[in-house]
Amino acid sequence: MSHRPYPNRERALRQLGRHVDPAPTIPAPTALLQFGESMARMREGARRVLAAQFPVDQYQLSTRPGVVGGEA
């Protein structure tokens, strides 16, 4: 005699899914607002870094560091 703990397939699947908790979800508007705010912070940080490396009011012949006026 073979051992058959679940003779009914649907009953077995219901018992497997009985203890599965649904994944927590963040409402779409909140998630989109948080994403937009983080992107704005990243953009502002990138602007500050670029402004520190390449000042707008200073003329520079080359963008390579240590090269001034074409001399190596």
Rank of each mutant, 00 (worst) to 15 (best):
R4D: 13
A51I: 02
M1S: 15
V20E: 06
A28K: 12
V20Q: 10
V68M: 06
T25H: 11
Q60S: 10
D21V: 08
L33D: 13
P5H: 02
G45R: 09
A52G: 05
A52F: 10
Y6Q: 03
R41H: 08
F35K: 12
V67N: 11
L61A: 11
G69Q: 04
Y59S: 07
M39H: 06
P7R: 04
V20W: 01
R14F: 01
I26L: 11
A28Y: 06
G69K: 00
N8I: 09
L61K: 08
F54Y: 15
Q15R: 15
L61Q: 09
P5Y: 02
E71Q: 07
A46N: 09
P27T: 06
R11M: 11
R9V: 10
Q58A: 10
A12K: 11
E71S: 00
A28W: 07
V56H: 10
L61S: 11
V20G: 03
Q60I: 02
D57E: 15
R48W: 07
G36E: 10
P55S: 00
Q58H: 11
R4C: 11
P65V: 03
A51W: 05
Q34G: 04
L32Q: 15
V56E: 12
L50C: 06
G45V: 00
D57F: 06
M42G: 01
D57K: 02
G70N: 13
V49C: 03
P29M: 00
R64N: 11
Y6M: 01
R48E: 14
Q60N: 09
N8H: 10
E71K: 03
E44R: 13
A28L: 13
V20H: 01
Q53R: 14
S38M: 10
G45S: 07
M39C: 11
P29E: 01
A51C: 04
A12L: 08
R64I: 09
P24Y: 04
R11A: 15
V67I: 15
A40P: 03
Q58M: 08
L50V: 09
R11Y: 07
F35V: 06
V56M: 08
A23E: 15
D21S: 12
R48M: 07
E71H: 05
P7Q: 03
R18Q: 14
R4S: 10
A28F: 06
P27L: 06
T30M: 13
P29A: 03
L13Y: 08
E44N: 13
L32I: 08
A72W: 07
E44W: 04
D21P: 00
I26V: 15
A51P: 01
R64F: 08
H3A: 08
P5C: 01
Q15E: 15
M42L: 13
M42P: 01
R18Y: 04
R47I: 02
A23G: 08
E10M: 02
M42T: 06
S2E: 12
Q15L: 09
P5K: 00
N8M: 02
F35E: 15
R14S: 04
A12E: 14
R14K: 14
M39E: 13
L61P: 05
D57T: 09
Q58R: 15
S2K: 12
M39P: 03
P65M: 00
P5S: 02
G66P: 04
A23T: 10
T63H: 11
E37V: 01
P7F: 00
